[in-house]
Design a binder for these strands. Sequence first.
DNA 1: AGCGACGTTCAGCGCCCGTTCAGGAGAGCG
DNA 2: CGCTCTCCTGAACGGGCGCTGAACGTCGCT
Lengths: 223, 223
Amino acid sequence: MKVLVVEDDRKIATAIQRGLTAEGFTVEVSFDGDDGLWRATEGSYDLILLDLMLPGRNGYQVCAALREAGDWTPVLVLTAKDGDLDEAEALDTGADDYLTKPFSYPVLLARVRALLRRAAGRDPVPVEVGDLRIDPGARRAWRAGEELALTAREFDVLEFLVRRAGQVLSKDEILAGVWDYDFEGEPNIVEVYVGRLRRKVDDPFARHTIETVRGAGYRMATT
Amino acid sequence: MKVLVVEDDRKIATAIQRGLTAEGFTVEVSFDGDDGLWRATEGSYDLILLDLMLPGRNGYQVCAALREAGDWTPVLVLTAKDGDLDEAEALDTGADDYLTKPFSYPVLLARVRALLRRAAGRDPVPVEVGDLRIDPGARRAWRAGEELALTAREFDVLEFLVRRAGQVLSKDEILAGVWDYDFEGEPNIVEVYVGRLRRKVDDPFARHTIETVRGAGYRMATT
DNA sequence: AGCGACGTTCAGCGCCCGTTCAGGAGAGCG
DNA sequence: CGCTCTCCTGAACGGGCGCTGAACGTCGCT
């Protein structure tokens, strides 16, 4: 799956690229409208993430030009909440969906999945690792058949870890992946949530399902 | 089930496509009359949604041309309320039903179902989940065999939730799915309707059949 | 015209949840 | 064995999310 990200804010672009790459997508980034349009027309992408405020051609123009050229690649528009530019207008130019900043990564991922699913006609699949099961659509989780009572943030963190079971994720990676990209708190918050999750998902007599890798981060056990 | 949408307003076309795709239909979209007619004659569709005001050939002409060619695919005409073009006239040219904009998504879906049903000679299947039963055709609902007195909007919301029982639906998704596509109100209205529905459908001594998933939306219980 | 039903908005409230912080525990190292 | 750095965790707080009752406007019906 190839994704094109057209976004001039490097911080945001990098965060998105990092996240989607980790998710298995091939990600290309473009920092201005003209370059973005060029890539979009030249390359063949499954999805385009398009910022509205751009140097060169703005998002509307890029999207309109694409549609004009008969290119119907799904476009997800990223827009500032307080923008004087209107989201509805973006949909008029042929975008398929939009997202207001700041958004958290899980929200972005959900939208991306929804768009690709719509394009492909498939449904989201529950994820399993060991005796842990996660259903992203229903936002429910089970350990050994028993449902876990998780808060929204706890669920997001758990899903993030489960999807990358076996990999070591640094606290910063988890922060970038689960929290809004402009979150400016301490990585300690990750420790807090890992602690809570352990209390909720661990069998008290077995070893942790979320292992600490001292100095590096955390790893979700694969068995 | 394949549906062709001929509508030049991208916003409306996209909304319809999104909704019907989620409902399991295969949807193709055409933005002008000539292209629409071409697709309609070339492809084989179970239903055609046809806007009247179109660039190129207008809706009347498309419909008349289709019938002329001996194509009796069901046609549902979409017309602007204040249009100088007359709905009755559309029916004369061979359309099977018409709908004035703005329409809400449930109304559209109901008409689509009705047409397909009429074409196939089959009845719509009542939906059940737990001891809740919904008959979309009759627009009636029962809990444990007892009929519920629901208003139109209440029924729409309930049907939307029941059809996606087990999934978490955000307030925005529910808004998009139940209200007019140009509704510009607050998501709070969803809370209000969920509250009313709970009072009407819940057994006062059991847990809610519409569960709140804090920070994410609502989920219809599957048992 | 009057009335009632229905849809929508708004403000207030209660409480859950996310976040912070500080103190303690434990690993790693010399 | 003691030092340091990282990680863990319980407590506390503040905001925001969701719920509800009331009021208002509108539409349809009689």
